[in-house]
Amino acid sequence: MTKALPNFFIVKYHDRKIITEKLYQENTTIVFVHIPKSAGTTTLECLRNVAEQRKLEKPQNVWFRNYLSIFNSLKSGKHHRSRAYLGVFALGVCDFVDQPCSYFTVFRDPIERTISSYMYCKKRRDKICHAADARNMTVKQWALHQGSVVFYQLLHNPELCEEQYNVEATDLMKKKGDIKRRNVDIPCWYKQILLLQKRIDKDRRQHVLSFILANMKNLFAFIGLAEKYNETLQMLEKVYDLPFYSLCAGDVKNKSVYKISGDNATDSKTMIVEKLKKDLMEDPEVREVLHEDMEIYNEAVRIFNKQLDKFKGLS
């Protein structure tokens, strides 16, 4: 799947060689794959703070504005290698790095993530909000619109975001009945979803999903969970021998309190999420469009617990 280093805690061999801690900790390229609304902003800032504290080179952001230029320069060999990369489009960097390179990411329950992005996009104009206008949608409509975004993020191909695909993506968007925010282009992440949905039928999608599930432990050197963020930071500190937990424990960004429409009382975010979550989980249409992401999340939980068991055994 990739030449990146496999899971630090549960994979013993890489390229037929025994894995050592040095591979992950000495002059290794670290790549954080940011899944939006999954403790991503918190982790981005933490990685930047860690780099600053250890006097490492500032991490290179791979995001909406520069991903094509970065990947093109990586392919040509002209890109100055950074010690760390981070961003929504960072998956793929390790394919072009000669030194040891590893990915890590943080997953979140797909339904909670969908609700979080819905609430966020009702108030913000972030790129993750541009493919549709959450202000004019119900949470169910938002869930059906977004679908299994992580599944397609793991299939990211920068070439699909080139201008040559704009007309096709726009036509697909119209056929689907989506209405994007005014005066904004179709964001790359959603353009890719539209194009891949056209090219991958249901049977093939299941084969691709099975491949992803079987290889997650080989793709990611570490898998974290937003729901268990302190444990995530503790294990990250062990993997890379960098002060993730020491510097960042308890520092959570974009954590809000929301008001239920029509109710003068303000409930906690957790209470609101639980009410919306129950409705979405019981909806067969929502369960179908989130099928791939639910399977990926369940595997991430399984791997996380395995990592945690190994980590505790090392303590």
Score class of each variant (00 low, 15 high):
residue 166 N to M: 01
residue 221 A to Q: 11
residue 71 F to Q: 00
residue 151 F to L: 02
residue 204 R to C: 12
residue 219 L to M: 15
residue 60 Q to Y: 10
residue 48 R to I: 01
residue 66 N to A: 07
residue 171 D to G: 08
residue 86 L to F: 14
residue 18 I to E: 13
residue 226 A to W: 03
residue 245 Y to E: 10
residue 138 T to F: 03
residue 220 F to M: 13
residue 163 E to D: 10
residue 214 A to N: 14
residue 252 V to Q: 13
residue 303 I to F: 04
residue 196 L to M: 15
residue 154 L to F: 02
residue 103 Y to D: 02
residue 302 R to H: 13
residue 106 V to R: 05
residue 167 V to W: 05
residue 78 K to L: 13
residue 229 Y to C: 07
residue 96 F to T: 02
residue 111 I to G: 09
residue 182 R to S: 12
residue 163 E to P: 06
residue 302 R to V: 11
residue 91 L to C: 08
residue 310 K to P: 06
residue 81 R to G: 04
residue 34 H to P: 04
residue 112 E to R: 13
residue 51 A to P: 02
residue 59 P to Q: 13
residue 245 Y to D: 10
residue 294 M to A: 08
residue 287 R to W: 05
residue 108 R to K: 12
residue 186 I to K: 00
residue 46 C to M: 09
residue 47 L to T: 05
residue 19 I to F: 07
residue 91 L to P: 00
residue 7 N to H: 01
residue 44 L to F: 12
residue 124 R to Q: 14
residue 135 R to K: 12
residue 89 F to A: 11
residue 208 V to W: 09
residue 185 D to A: 15
residue 193 I to G: 04
residue 184 V to A: 10
residue 242 L to K: 11
residue 93 V to S: 07
residue 308 L to H: 13
residue 131 A to D: 12
residue 177 G to I: 01
residue 121 C to Q: 03
residue 272 I to P: 06
residue 48 R to H: 03
residue 312 K to M: 14
residue 201 D to R: 11
residue 95 D to V: 02
residue 88 V to T: 11
residue 181 R to Y: 11
residue 261 S to A: 15
residue 246 S to D: 09
residue 13 Y to C: 06
residue 34 H to C: 08
residue 278 K to C: 08
residue 273 V to M: 13
residue 216 M to Y: 06
residue 292 E to Y: 14
residue 71 F to P: 04
residue 257 V to D: 14
residue 10 I to S: 03
residue 131 A to R: 08
residue 303 I to M: 01
residue 170 T to W: 01
residue 204 R to I: 12
residue 136 N to R: 15
residue 146 Q to I: 04
residue 79 H to L: 03
residue 11 V to T: 01
residue 251 D to H: 12
residue 100 P to Q: 10
residue 199 R to D: 11
